[in-house]
Amino acid sequence: MKIGFIINDHATEKWNYTTPALGYAAYKRGHDVFFIGVGELSYASKGHLSVRCKTIKDRVFKGEETYFKAVQKEEFVNLSSKDLDVLFLRNNPADEINERDWAYNAAFIFGEIAMSNGVLVLNHPSSLAGAVNKMYFQHFPEILRPKTIITRDHNEIKEFFKEQKQKMILKPLQGSGGTNVFMMDKKNEHNLSQTIDAICRDGFVIAQEYLTEATGGDTRLFLMNGEPLQVNGQYALMQRVNASGDIRSNIHAGGKPEKVKMTDQIMELADIVRPKLVQDGMFLVGIDIVGSKLMEINVFSPGGLNVMGQMYDADFATPVIEAIERKVYYKSMYGDYLYNSRLATL
Protein backbone atom coordinates (compact mmCIF):
# COMPACT_ATOMS: atom_id res chain seq x y z
CA MET A 1 0.00 0.00 0.00
CA LYS A 2 1.20 3.49 -0.84
CA ILE A 3 -0.18 6.02 1.61
CA GLY A 4 0.35 9.77 1.77
CA PHE A 5 -0.26 11.87 4.87
CA ILE A 6 -0.98 15.57 4.37
CA ILE A 7 0.39 17.70 7.20
CA ASN A 8 0.43 21.47 7.62
CA ASP A 9 4.15 21.92 7.13
CA HIS A 10 7.33 19.89 7.55
CA ALA A 11 8.83 22.72 9.59
CA THR A 12 6.12 22.54 12.25
CA GLU A 13 5.32 18.81 12.35
CA LYS A 14 6.86 17.08 15.39
CA TRP A 15 7.78 13.43 15.79
CA ASN A 16 5.47 12.96 18.80
CA TYR A 17 2.33 14.10 16.96
CA THR A 18 -0.36 11.59 16.01
CA THR A 19 0.30 11.71 12.25
CA PRO A 20 3.94 10.56 12.49
CA ALA A 21 2.74 7.78 14.81
CA LEU A 22 0.29 6.62 12.13
CA GLY A 23 2.98 6.91 9.47
CA TYR A 24 5.41 4.84 11.50
CA ALA A 25 2.77 2.17 12.11
CA ALA A 26 2.22 1.94 8.35
CA TYR A 27 5.98 1.87 7.68
CA LYS A 28 6.47 -1.01 10.11
CA ARG A 29 3.82 -2.98 8.22
CA GLY A 30 5.85 -2.66 5.02
CA HIS A 31 3.90 0.12 3.33
CA ASP A 32 5.37 3.04 1.38
CA VAL A 33 4.68 6.15 3.45
CA PHE A 34 4.84 9.74 2.20
CA PHE A 35 4.52 12.99 4.19
CA ILE A 36 3.18 15.96 2.23
CA GLY A 37 2.97 19.56 3.41
CA VAL A 38 -0.03 21.59 2.21
CA GLY A 39 2.37 23.86 0.31
CA GLU A 40 3.71 20.88 -1.66
CA LEU A 41 0.40 20.14 -3.41
CA SER A 42 -0.14 20.94 -7.08
CA TYR A 43 -2.37 20.16 -10.05
CA ALA A 44 -0.65 18.57 -13.04
CA SER A 45 -1.61 19.43 -16.61
CA LYS A 46 -3.10 15.99 -17.27
CA GLY A 47 -5.52 16.36 -14.36
CA HIS A 48 -3.57 14.46 -11.73
CA LEU A 49 -2.63 15.52 -8.24
CA SER A 50 1.12 16.09 -8.07
CA VAL A 51 3.05 16.51 -4.83
CA ARG A 52 6.50 17.06 -3.40
CA CYS A 53 6.94 14.85 -0.39
CA LYS A 54 9.37 13.15 1.97
CA THR A 55 9.72 9.40 2.39
CA ILE A 56 12.22 6.82 3.53
CA LYS A 57 12.71 3.13 2.70
CA ASP A 58 14.62 0.01 3.68
CA ARG A 59 15.80 1.12 7.09
CA VAL A 60 15.06 -0.16 10.56
CA PHE A 61 14.27 2.29 13.35
CA LYS A 62 14.05 1.93 17.10
CA GLY A 63 10.89 3.97 17.30
CA GLU A 64 8.72 6.78 16.00
CA GLU A 65 11.18 9.52 16.98
CA THR A 66 14.17 8.18 15.06
CA TYR A 67 11.92 7.28 12.14
CA PHE A 68 10.30 10.66 11.67
CA LYS A 69 13.48 12.65 12.28
CA ALA A 70 15.16 10.56 9.58
CA VAL A 71 12.23 11.23 7.23
CA GLN A 72 12.54 14.96 7.80
CA LYS A 73 16.21 14.90 6.81
CA GLU A 74 15.38 13.37 3.44
CA GLU A 75 15.25 15.44 0.26
CA PHE A 76 11.91 16.09 -1.38
CA VAL A 77 10.77 13.69 -4.09
CA ASN A 78 7.98 14.10 -6.63
CA LEU A 79 4.90 11.91 -6.62
CA SER A 80 1.66 11.71 -8.60
CA SER A 81 -1.77 10.58 -7.48
CA LYS A 82 -1.26 7.70 -9.95
CA ASP A 83 1.34 6.39 -7.48
CA LEU A 84 -0.94 6.55 -4.40
CA ASP A 85 -3.52 4.18 -2.97
CA VAL A 86 -4.53 6.37 -0.01
CA LEU A 87 -4.33 10.05 0.86
CA PHE A 88 -4.97 10.77 4.54
CA LEU A 89 -5.79 14.46 5.16
CA ARG A 90 -4.25 15.13 8.57
CA ASN A 91 -3.57 18.88 8.42
CA ASN A 92 -5.37 21.37 10.66
CA PRO A 93 -6.88 24.30 8.68
CA ALA A 94 -7.25 26.35 11.88
CA ASP A 95 -3.46 26.54 12.22
CA GLU A 96 -3.36 28.51 8.96
CA ILE A 97 -5.69 31.34 10.00
CA ASN A 98 -3.98 34.75 9.67
CA GLU A 99 -0.72 32.96 8.83
CA ARG A 100 -1.19 31.20 5.51
CA ASP A 101 -4.77 31.89 4.47
CA TRP A 102 -4.12 30.33 1.05
CA ALA A 103 -3.56 26.98 2.82
CA TYR A 104 -6.83 27.06 4.76
CA ASN A 105 -8.88 24.89 2.41
CA ALA A 106 -6.14 23.58 0.10
CA ALA A 107 -6.01 20.00 1.40
CA PHE A 108 -9.61 19.09 0.75
CA ILE A 109 -9.63 20.92 -2.61
CA PHE A 110 -6.66 18.87 -3.77
CA GLY A 111 -8.11 15.85 -1.98
CA GLU A 112 -11.09 16.06 -4.33
CA ILE A 113 -8.68 15.87 -7.28
CA ALA A 114 -6.95 12.82 -5.81
CA MET A 115 -10.34 11.20 -5.25
CA SER A 116 -11.30 11.76 -8.89
CA ASN A 117 -8.00 10.06 -9.81
CA GLY A 118 -9.13 6.91 -7.97
CA VAL A 119 -7.26 7.49 -4.70
CA LEU A 120 -9.00 6.62 -1.43
CA VAL A 121 -9.13 9.92 0.48
CA LEU A 122 -9.64 10.04 4.26
CA ASN A 123 -11.49 11.73 5.80
CA HIS A 124 -13.93 12.31 2.93
CA PRO A 125 -12.81 15.67 1.45
CA SER A 126 -16.26 16.99 0.50
CA SER A 127 -17.44 16.52 4.09
CA LEU A 128 -14.29 18.14 5.46
CA ALA A 129 -15.02 21.19 3.33
CA GLY A 130 -18.38 21.47 5.09
CA ALA A 131 -16.78 20.99 8.50
CA VAL A 132 -14.11 23.65 8.18
CA ASN A 133 -15.69 25.70 10.95
CA LYS A 134 -17.54 24.85 14.15
CA MET A 135 -20.95 25.20 12.48
CA TYR A 136 -20.57 21.54 11.50
CA PHE A 137 -21.05 20.68 15.16
CA GLN A 138 -24.50 22.30 15.12
CA HIS A 139 -25.76 19.66 12.68
CA PHE A 140 -25.59 16.96 15.35
CA PRO A 141 -28.60 16.30 17.64
CA GLU A 142 -29.30 19.14 20.05
CA ILE A 143 -29.30 16.78 23.03
CA LEU A 144 -25.54 16.40 22.59
CA ARG A 145 -24.67 20.09 22.60
CA PRO A 146 -24.45 22.88 25.17
CA LYS A 147 -26.85 25.79 24.57
CA THR A 148 -25.25 27.90 21.87
CA ILE A 149 -25.77 30.96 19.70
CA ILE A 150 -23.57 32.02 16.76
CA THR A 151 -23.72 35.68 15.83
CA ARG A 152 -21.86 38.97 15.41
CA ASP A 153 -24.57 40.96 17.18
CA HIS A 154 -23.39 42.39 20.51
CA ASN A 155 -26.91 42.69 21.86
CA GLU A 156 -27.73 39.04 21.15
CA ILE A 157 -24.59 37.93 22.94
CA LYS A 158 -25.27 40.17 25.92
CA GLU A 159 -28.84 38.90 26.16
CA PHE A 160 -27.56 35.33 26.06
CA PHE A 161 -25.10 36.26 28.83
CA LYS A 162 -28.03 37.33 31.01
CA GLU A 163 -29.96 34.15 30.21
CA GLN A 164 -26.92 32.12 31.27
CA LYS A 165 -26.83 33.94 34.63
CA GLN A 166 -23.73 35.89 33.66
CA LYS A 167 -21.47 32.96 32.92
CA MET A 168 -20.66 31.72 29.40
CA ILE A 169 -17.90 30.77 26.98
CA LEU A 170 -16.98 32.93 23.99
CA LYS A 171 -14.91 31.62 21.08
CA PRO A 172 -14.52 32.16 17.34
CA LEU A 173 -16.50 30.13 14.82
CA GLN A 174 -13.28 29.33 12.99
CA GLY A 175 -10.29 27.94 14.85
CA SER A 176 -9.30 25.18 17.23
CA GLY A 177 -6.70 24.25 19.81
CA GLY A 178 -8.08 26.61 22.44
CA THR A 179 -7.19 29.79 20.55
CA ASN A 180 -9.21 32.88 21.59
CA VAL A 181 -11.47 30.99 24.00
CA PHE A 182 -12.75 33.11 26.88
CA MET A 183 -14.86 32.43 29.94
CA MET A 184 -17.00 35.44 30.77
CA ASP A 185 -18.59 35.97 34.20
CA LYS A 186 -19.49 38.75 36.62
CA LYS A 187 -15.83 39.40 37.41
CA ASN A 188 -14.84 40.28 33.84
CA GLU A 189 -18.21 41.47 32.54
CA HIS A 190 -16.70 44.94 32.07
CA ASN A 191 -14.55 43.42 29.29
CA LEU A 192 -17.47 41.78 27.48
CA SER A 193 -17.81 44.31 24.64
CA GLN A 194 -14.05 44.39 24.13
CA THR A 195 -13.87 40.58 24.00
CA ILE A 196 -16.73 40.37 21.50
CA ASP A 197 -15.00 42.98 19.32
CA ALA A 198 -11.74 41.02 19.40
CA ILE A 199 -13.40 37.79 18.25
CA CYS A 200 -15.58 39.59 15.69
CA ARG A 201 -12.46 40.80 13.89
CA ASP A 202 -11.98 37.22 12.68
CA GLY A 203 -15.64 36.46 11.94
CA PHE A 204 -18.59 35.09 13.88
CA VAL A 205 -18.72 34.59 17.65
CA ILE A 206 -19.87 31.43 19.38
CA ALA A 207 -21.49 32.12 22.75
CA GLN A 208 -21.95 28.89 24.64
CA GLU A 209 -23.42 27.64 27.88
CA TYR A 210 -20.77 27.17 30.57
CA LEU A 211 -20.73 23.63 31.92
CA THR A 212 -19.63 23.46 35.55
CA GLU A 213 -17.99 20.08 34.90
CA ALA A 214 -15.52 21.89 32.62
CA THR A 215 -13.45 22.85 35.66
CA GLY A 216 -12.13 19.28 35.59
CA GLY A 217 -11.19 19.49 31.91
CA ASP A 218 -12.66 17.38 29.13
CA THR A 219 -12.50 13.83 27.84
CA ARG A 220 -11.06 13.05 24.39
CA LEU A 221 -12.24 9.85 22.70
CA PHE A 222 -11.13 8.60 19.29
CA LEU A 223 -13.77 7.15 16.99
CA MET A 224 -12.81 5.03 13.98
CA ASN A 225 -15.48 4.13 11.43
CA GLY A 226 -17.93 5.72 13.87
CA GLU A 227 -17.01 3.35 16.72
CA PRO A 228 -14.83 3.94 19.81
CA LEU A 229 -11.27 2.88 19.00
CA GLN A 230 -10.05 0.16 21.32
CA VAL A 231 -7.19 -2.34 21.62
CA ASN A 232 -7.39 -5.37 23.90
CA GLY A 233 -10.15 -3.78 25.95
CA GLN A 234 -8.34 -0.44 26.27
CA TYR A 235 -10.11 2.55 24.73
CA ALA A 236 -8.34 5.45 23.02
CA LEU A 237 -9.65 7.74 25.72
CA MET A 238 -8.10 10.30 28.05
CA GLN A 239 -9.03 13.07 30.43
CA ARG A 240 -7.44 16.41 29.56
CA VAL A 241 -7.12 18.37 32.79
CA ASN A 242 -6.97 22.15 32.58
CA ALA A 243 -3.77 23.91 33.50
CA SER A 244 -4.21 25.95 36.68
CA GLY A 245 -6.44 28.97 36.06
CA ASP A 246 -7.04 28.08 32.40
CA ILE A 247 -10.41 27.05 30.94
CA ARG A 248 -8.72 25.33 27.98
CA SER A 249 -7.89 21.65 28.28
CA ASN A 250 -6.14 21.16 24.93
CA ILE A 251 -2.74 19.55 25.48
CA HIS A 252 -1.04 22.13 23.24
CA ALA A 253 -2.62 24.80 25.45
CA GLY A 254 -1.18 23.30 28.62
CA GLY A 255 -3.75 20.64 29.45
CA LYS A 256 -2.46 17.57 31.27
CA PRO A 257 -3.47 14.10 30.03
CA GLU A 258 -4.71 11.52 32.53
CA LYS A 259 -6.22 8.04 32.37
CA VAL A 260 -10.00 7.78 32.49
CA LYS A 261 -12.42 4.85 32.40
CA MET A 262 -15.04 4.34 29.72
CA THR A 263 -18.57 4.95 31.00
CA ASP A 264 -22.06 4.16 29.73
CA GLN A 265 -22.63 7.91 29.29
CA ILE A 266 -19.58 8.30 27.02
CA MET A 267 -20.64 5.24 25.01
CA GLU A 268 -24.12 6.71 24.59
CA LEU A 269 -22.73 10.01 23.29
CA ALA A 270 -20.47 8.13 20.87
CA ASP A 271 -23.43 6.09 19.66
CA ILE A 272 -25.52 9.22 18.96
CA VAL A 273 -22.80 10.88 16.84
CA ARG A 274 -22.04 7.70 14.90
CA PRO A 275 -24.75 7.88 12.15
CA LYS A 276 -23.73 11.30 10.87
CA LEU A 277 -20.00 10.54 11.04
CA VAL A 278 -20.55 7.36 9.02
CA GLN A 279 -22.79 9.18 6.54
CA ASP A 280 -20.19 11.92 6.09
CA GLY A 281 -17.26 9.54 5.57
CA MET A 282 -15.44 10.65 8.72
CA PHE A 283 -13.04 7.76 9.23
CA LEU A 284 -10.98 8.95 12.22
CA VAL A 285 -12.23 11.70 14.53
CA GLY A 286 -11.81 12.90 18.09
CA ILE A 287 -14.79 13.89 20.22
CA ASP A 288 -14.39 16.08 23.30
CA ILE A 289 -16.84 15.50 26.14
CA VAL A 290 -17.69 17.53 29.24
CA GLY A 291 -20.20 15.95 31.60
CA SER A 292 -23.15 14.78 29.50
CA LYS A 293 -22.39 17.09 26.57
CA LEU A 294 -20.17 17.08 23.53
CA MET A 295 -17.99 20.19 23.33
CA GLU A 296 -16.31 19.61 19.98
CA ILE A 297 -15.87 17.10 17.16
CA ASN A 298 -12.39 17.24 15.63
CA VAL A 299 -12.59 15.74 12.13
CA PHE A 300 -9.34 17.16 10.74
CA SER A 301 -6.33 16.19 12.82
CA PRO A 302 -7.37 14.95 16.27
CA GLY A 303 -4.29 14.54 18.42
CA GLY A 304 -3.32 12.53 21.45
CA LEU A 305 -3.36 9.01 20.01
CA ASN A 306 0.33 8.52 20.79
CA VAL A 307 -0.16 9.99 24.29
CA MET A 308 -2.94 7.50 24.93
CA GLY A 309 -0.78 4.69 23.61
CA GLN A 310 1.96 5.48 26.12
CA MET A 311 -0.58 5.96 28.90
CA TYR A 312 -2.23 2.57 28.46
CA ASP A 313 0.76 0.74 26.97
CA ALA A 314 -1.37 0.04 23.90
CA ASP A 315 -0.71 0.40 20.18
CA PHE A 316 -3.67 2.42 18.90
CA ALA A 317 -2.00 3.41 15.62
CA THR A 318 -1.72 -0.07 14.09
CA PRO A 319 -5.50 -0.81 14.14
CA VAL A 320 -6.02 2.45 12.23
CA ILE A 321 -3.62 1.29 9.51
CA GLU A 322 -5.20 -2.17 9.48
CA ALA A 323 -8.60 -0.54 8.91
CA ILE A 324 -7.17 1.43 5.97
CA GLU A 325 -5.69 -1.77 4.52
CA ARG A 326 -9.17 -3.31 4.52
CA LYS A 327 -10.57 -0.30 2.70
CA VAL A 328 -7.88 -0.57 0.02
CA TYR A 329 -8.77 -4.26 -0.35
CA TYR A 330 -12.47 -3.46 -0.71
CA LYS A 331 -11.64 -0.81 -3.31
CA SER A 332 -9.59 -3.33 -5.29
CA MET A 333 -12.59 -5.70 -5.28
CA TYR A 334 -15.32 -3.18 -6.09
CA GLY A 335 -13.44 -0.55 -8.12
CA ASP A 336 -15.48 2.63 -8.47
CA TYR A 337 -18.72 0.95 -7.41
CA LEU A 338 -18.25 2.09 -3.79
CA TYR A 339 -18.31 5.84 -3.24
CA ASN A 340 -15.36 7.32 -1.36
CA SER A 341 -17.68 8.64 1.36
CA ARG A 342 -19.03 5.13 2.02
CA LEU A 343 -15.72 3.32 1.71
CA ALA A 344 -14.18 5.76 4.21
CA THR A 345 -16.20 4.35 7.10
CA LEU A 346 -16.52 0.69 6.09
Score class of each variant (00 low, 15 high):
A25E: 15
I206E: 05
Q265K: 13
I157H: 10
T195P: 00
E99F: 14
T179S: 13
G226V: 06
M282D: 14
D264H: 11
R100N: 10
I196N: 06
I206N: 04
K69H: 04
K62P: 00
S116K: 10
I56K: 06
V119H: 04
L305M: 15
K82Q: 11
Q194T: 11
F110D: 13
E99K: 14
T66M: 08
K256I: 02
K327C: 02
T18K: 05
K162D: 14
I109V: 10
E64K: 13
V299K: 01
D32E: 08
P93E: 09
N98A: 06
L120E: 11
N188H: 08
D246C: 05
I150D: 11
Y67E: 09
I97M: 10
F110C: 01
A323S: 15
V77M: 13
A107E: 09
K57P: 00
M1F: 14
L294Y: 01
F110H: 12
G111K: 13
N180R: 09
N225G: 10
L84W: 06
N250P: 01
T18G: 04
Q239N: 15
M224V: 11
N306Y: 05
G23L: 04
V51K: 03
S45G: 07
N98I: 05
E322S: 03
I6Q: 07
V60F: 10
S301G: 07
M333K: 13
G175T: 09
L120I: 15
N242I: 02
N242E: 03
F182A: 03
I266M: 14
F5Q: 09
L229Q: 04
S45N: 10
F300H: 14
G37L: 05
E112P: 00
A270F: 02
F300N: 09
H124A: 09
T219L: 01
F76V: 12
Y339H: 05
F76D: 15
A129Q: 10
A11L: 11
T18L: 06
I113N: 09
I266F: 06
H139L: 12
I143V: 04
A344T: 01
H124D: 11
N91P: 03
Q279F: 08
N306G: 12
I113A: 01
L192V: 02
A131I: 07
M224I: 13
E163A: 06
M168G: 02
E159Q: 04
T179I: 15
K165N: 15
E258N: 06
R152W: 05
I149Y: 10
I56R: 03
M262W: 11
T12W: 03
A129S: 12
W102K: 02
I36S: 13
N155L: 07
E99V: 09
L41K: 04
F283A: 13
K73P: 06
Y104L: 07
G335W: 09
V307Y: 02
A129D: 14
V38Q: 02
T345I: 02
K158W: 11
P141Q: 09
T179P: 00
E40M: 00
L144I: 01
K46N: 15
Y329L: 01
Y312R: 10
W15G: 04
A317G: 13
V38P: 01
D32A: 01
V290S: 03
D315Q: 04
D32P: 00
A26R: 02
L305C: 05
P125F: 08
R248C: 03
E322P: 00
Y27K: 08
T12I: 14
Q138S: 05
N92M: 06
F76A: 15
N242R: 11
E213D: 14
H10E: 06
I321F: 03
R59C: 09
K186S: 10
N123M: 00
D264S: 15
F88W: 08
